[in-house]
Amino acid sequence: MNSAGLLADAFGRVREVVHETVAGLSPALLHARLDPRANTIAWLAWHLTRIQDDHIADVADEEQLWLSAGWADRFALPFPEAATGYGHTSKQVAAVKVESADLLLGYYDAVHDRTVHFVRGLRNVDLDRVVDESWSPPVTLGVRLVSVVAEECACGGSWL
């Protein structure tokens, strides 16, 4: 297996967990909070998808599906369109209300499909391309992609 295949497999495994967790849940379960400061399943699924959409769009030099495919309008959340959930307060977490698990999974699947299409086209040498010089050391494409997988695992681990 090459690096692109490995990354596609990692994103595929995250997809399995997202679907196993979210599919078929009622809005009440998607929005349930075990503690007033706890993240909801809806927020976790939305957040990990927003991070993936944001980061992959950036490194692929494309517009986020959140905007270009109308997902921001379908979700109609009370945040700026660029919001990804990073740094959200407990009140903002509670504001992520979705009509159904299908809406979350529709957005997730669209982002996942674009991500896998992007990573399958990569060669090992592509992973060394610097994509963010604001860090020391600068962030390469490979590091950014692993960071996205790690973020998704951290969010997924929150609901398991």
Score class of each variant (00 low, 15 high):
Gly85Met: 08
Ala94Cys: 07
Gly157Pro: 13
Gly157Leu: 15
Leu105Ala: 14
Leu104Met: 11
Leu122Lys: 04
Leu104Gln: 10
Leu122Pro: 11
Glu151His: 02
Gly106Thr: 10
Glu152His: 09
Val148Gly: 01
Thr115Met: 10
Cys155Ala: 12
Val116Ser: 06
Ala150Phe: 03
Val139Ser: 11
Val119Cys: 05
Trp135Asn: 02
Val119Glu: 04
Leu127Thr: 01
Lys97Arg: 08
Asp132Pro: 00
Gly142His: 03
Phe118Tyr: 07
His88Ala: 10
Tyr107Val: 10
Thr140Asp: 15
Asp102Ile: 02
Val131Met: 06
His117Pro: 00
Val130Ile: 14
Ser90Tyr: 11
Glu99Phe: 11
Tyr86Gln: 08
Arg114Gly: 09
Gln92Met: 13
Leu104Tyr: 01
Val143Tyr: 03
Asp132Ser: 02
Ala95Ile: 04
Ser158His: 09
Val111Ser: 12
Arg144Ile: 09
Cys155Tyr: 12
Lys97Glu: 13
Ser136Asp: 11
Val111Glu: 12
Gln92Trp: 06
Ala150Asp: 12
Val130Arg: 00
Pro138Met: 11
Cys153Glu: 14
Ser90His: 03
Ser136Phe: 07
His88Thr: 03
Gly121Ile: 01
Leu160His: 05
Ala95Asn: 08
Thr89Met: 11
Leu141Met: 14
Gly106Trp: 00
Val119Trp: 10
Asp128His: 07
Phe118Arg: 00
Asp128Ser: 11
Arg129Tyr: 12
Ser134Trp: 02
Ala83Gln: 09
Arg144Gly: 07
Glu133Val: 04
Gly142Leu: 13
Ala94Ser: 07
Asp109Pro: 11
Glu133Ile: 01
Gly121Leu: 05
His117Glu: 15
Leu127Asn: 04
Gly156Ser: 15
Leu127Ile: 03
Leu141Ile: 02
His112Ala: 07
Val111Asn: 10
Lys91Trp: 01
Ser134Leu: 09
Gly106His: 10
Arg114Pro: 14
Arg123Thr: 03
Ala110Lys: 06
Thr115Cys: 09
Gly121Trp: 02
Gly156Met: 14
Lys91Val: 02
Asp126Lys: 03
Trp159Tyr: 09
Phe118Ile: 04
Asn124Val: 01
Ala101Arg: 01
Leu160Met: 12
Trp159His: 05
Val139Gly: 03
Ser90Trp: 12
His88Cys: 08
Ala110Gln: 11
Ser134Phe: 01
Asp113Pro: 08
Val96Gly: 14
Tyr107Gly: 12
Glu99Met: 12
Asp109Lys: 00
Val111Gly: 08
Leu127Met: 04
Gln92His: 04
Val119Phe: 09
Gly142Val: 09
Gly106Arg: 08
Val98Met: 12
Ser136Tyr: 06
Tyr108Leu: 15
Leu145Lys: 02
Val139Asp: 00
Trp159Leu: 10
Leu122Asp: 08
Val143Ala: 10
Arg129Gln: 13
His88Trp: 13
Leu104Ala: 13
His112Thr: 00
Glu152Gly: 07
Asp102Tyr: 01
Val139Ala: 06
Gly85Phe: 01
Thr115Gly: 05
